[in-house]
Design a protein around this nucleic acid. Structure first.
Lengths: 110, 110
DNA sequence: CTATTCATATAGGTATTCTATAGGAGGCAA
DNA sequence: TTGCCTCCTATAGAATACCTATATGAATAG
């Protein structure tokens, strides 16, 4: 991702993708557009980050891709969440919450 | 850091160190103990992560180290925040807040 | 028929973390 | 004084996940 926030995002990209796919199946660029739109461009997911991530997630069995046709008549791979992916999303959410709480504790210490 | 939360922490270690030092000068192990204590061991900063980070921060001019003696009579390097480090901490804080907000938006989308 | 856009893909580089290992030096016990 | 444990710092090497840059093919616009 870009915007000087890349490093703070390490490890959260997977979660954002899983969450996005939990709402509806989307193809790769669709996912990155959705994330960019929802965050008002705070996150811009680059193709070079996105596609390796998608392959990784598919490899792990958390998402499943199927070739289809995009809204623009282009050949596109649509991904959907698997049952394992849904469980994984839950884990990552809990983990993320715990991390944010821990960081908040440090940042508010006096 | 450990605890399966390492990757979610990429890039935040610097901020946690700067924040910790903003309260008082500490030597390396003292910093990691403080962070571990405040977060109830959610974060455990390993020496192999801590010392490279400290050297990096000193290199950037955000902290300054001075050799001294620890509370246990050991040779220890005490770090304190510089003026630049204080500004940097502010930037990282704002950045972090923005990232958390953006992620929250994605995670709460329906 | 050419250029642009859409969509996916990958190579190469960078940065930060982890694990593992090392070593000096103080404190303590026998 | 010998040996061991703890404290404190340090670094090498591997893993990971991101970035930039580049590539390809197919549909569409002009």
């Amino acid at each position: 991702m870009t915007g000087d926030r890349a490093d703070l995002l390490r490890g959260t990209l997977d979660m954002l993708i899983l969450k996005t796919l939990s709402l509806q199946p989307l193809h790769g660029l669709g996912i990155s557009r959705r994330i960019e739109q929802i965050t008002d461009s705070v996150f811009q997911v680059q193709p070079g980050s996105l596609f390796p991530a998608l392959h990784r997630l598919e490899q792990e069995g958390w998402i499943r891709g199927r070739w289809g046709e995009s809204e623009n008549k282009r050949r596109a791979k649509f991904y959907e969440l698997t049952a394992a992916g849904r469980r994984r999303l839950g884990e990552e959410k809990r983990n993320w919450t715990q991390v944010v709480l821990a960081i908040t504790k440090v940042m508010e210490a006096t």
